[in-house]
Design a protein around this nucleic acid. Structure first.
Lengths: 161, 161
DNA sequence: CGGAAATGATTGACGTGTCAATTATATTCC
DNA sequence: GGAATATAATTGACACGTCAATCATTTCCG
């Protein structure tokens, strides 16, 4: 086996990179478009509503919510603003810490989430699961794990510069 | 083997779906952030500049360019507007068809592209290639092919409704 | 020829994501 | 106690993507 690390990607590696990144992006876009057209929710909305639905009393501190779904604060803040305007959530001040804010699931938000769930699961099956063999699905899990671990390593290396 | 098609994803399939979609999104974001910080170009800029660099005389009809990189017209139009403002490309009227427009690579655009290439290839190696075994890279290619074919089928089914 | 339809491209509105700056409150520690 | 600092969250500016509407030109065809 020849030395690979430290060199540029080969033509073949580059071809696979492009295929992979473009296809996963297309898959993401297709799922998002289905969710939006079938339920009026964006994937962002869905993540927020899912997290709130699973939270106690349908409410979470902004920072908890951000951590749960892995978003930056400001992204969440902007998004909650839009969801608030649409009546999907409500914002309340946090009693224990006056700096804090809580996002609260509204009835309307809960209803929208419930309407969205079944079609969304169906879309995931149709667009992802049905396109792959069981072995390929396992391979997708392996790939995700390997890439995620590697990304984390890389980020840590960056930070300890 | 039990019947799977037509049912909701299993817990395990759903876990893999989430892992997969989140990780590929994180990978995309990480590569884009590297490219931007190292060269001042977005991945969109890079795609456009790559296509123009490979085109004859560094120029392409808008529609050709859109087809080459697989973008919608309006997306390209907005993007070319931004790149034009930054001096990376120039727009010219098409002589054969007065409706048409051509995007032309400027010296500045070509220079920016050349500065970006090496660091970008390095980032792809570091973030993608180095995180996977050769077998996993092949698996990524297989997955992309399977998902892409399936997405196309699905789109065709949709259109012939 | 001349009007209807098709084609190439742009535009505006709006949701989304990131970054840097800001505001407000809480904590730390001299 | 009170200034320095840290933390929670919001805001503004700007790039990006999508959709529907628009505009100009060309093509089709009666």
């Amino acid at each position: 086996m020849t030395q690979r690390r430290g060199r540029f990607p080969t033509r073949e590696e580059l071809r696979i990179w492009r295929d992979f990144i473009e296809t996963t992006e297309a898959l993401r876009a297709a799922t998002a478009a289905r969710l939006l057209s079938e339920s009026g929710l964006s994937t962002g909305d869905y993540s927020v509503l899912l997290a709130l639905s699973e939270a106690e009393n349908g409410r979470l501190r902004s920072s908890e919510l951000a951590a749960t779904i892995g978003w930056e604060r400001s992204r969440l803040s902007h998004h909650l603003g839009r969801m608030d305007r649409r009546g999907l959530i409500r914002r309340e001040n946090c009693t224990e810490d006056n700096r804090g804010a809580e996002a609260v699931l509204t009835e309307e938000g809960a209803a929208a989430f419930h309407r969205a769930t079944v079609p969304h699961l169906r879309a995931i099956r149709e667009l992802f699961v049905d396109g792959l063999t069981p072995a390929q699905i396992r391979a997708a899990g392996d790939l995700a794990a390997a890439l995620r671990d590697h990304l984390i390593l890389d980020r840590e290396k960056e930070e300890n510069l």
